[in-house]
Amino acid sequence: MQLSRDDLLEAYRKMRMIREFEDAVHEEFSAGNIPGFVHLYAGEEASGVGVCMHLDDRDAIASTHRGHGHCIAKNCDERAMMFEIFGRKEGLCGGKGGSMHIADMSKGMMGANGIVGGGPPLICGAALSAKYLKTGGVAIAFVGDGASNQGTTFESYNLAKVWNLPAIFVVEDNGYAESTASKWSVAGSQVDRAKGFGMPSYDVDGHDFFAVWEAAREAIERARNDGGPSLIHSRLNRYYGHFEGDAISYKAPGEIEKVKAEKDAIMLFRNRVSEAGLLDGPAMDAVDKACRERIAQVLAEAKAGAMPTEADLLTDVYTSAY
């Protein structure tokens, strides 16, 4: 399986869209225009996009606090996302979920999750549905290095293996669970943990779209062919704090700048495809411009969007009669 020129352009577009989206949210949050908490994915784009390029609507993903990137990678509408983050009625979740619960079940996006380690059990269920209903679908849990220490995550590794589910666990290890370093908080290694459960595992540079894409290709193909679960340890960095407003004082001086200069996911992608002659600079520049304009537009619309009203407070609690 190869990436076509269109695939590459689409991968690039999504990564750029995530970056533009998160940068815009960062600025708006700093300006006091966004309520609540936001956790930004900037810097981690290659991981979410590298995995989700293999997926379609029959596949499900569960995300983390840091869910905007996964949403965009899984084809959620960035306009409705922006409305949601601003708490607007036209938001993807009607303004009821916000950044931490942003979801679109119709796209197989089972939600950002406010509970660290909330996703892995859920995707075991989505994988069970796919297996039982024979859709050929797979289910993927993105977890951070923080969630990798939760019992739910280990239990899900075990259940996925015992039930031989088409499930993949992608540990996006950005080095910090909130302010706590993963090299302190994680005993052993992510891939060794997977081996302990008899799962194939991959250790990849999460800044490298192609490395992630290749590992995900193998894992997803195995899952689709009834070969059971796998784990991908995706090592990467986040550019912003754990949440917006985090002063990031726990990181070393210059740590982020060094990553941006040497390992920026978008930069690495551009260099790689340019050197290989797969995409040219002007084509990618055009994508940059289009993404920038799109985000500026949805931002302006979201800021002007209507808020939900009292009539919305008590709707959507139940489906059947109550």
Binding site: P120, P121, L128, Y132, L159
Partner: peptide
Amino acid sequence: ITESAFIGAAAGAAATGL
């Protein structure tokens, strides 16, 4: 014996068609 995983899996399966 893994209530977190299978109760969560039941929730996930319910949300995805079962």
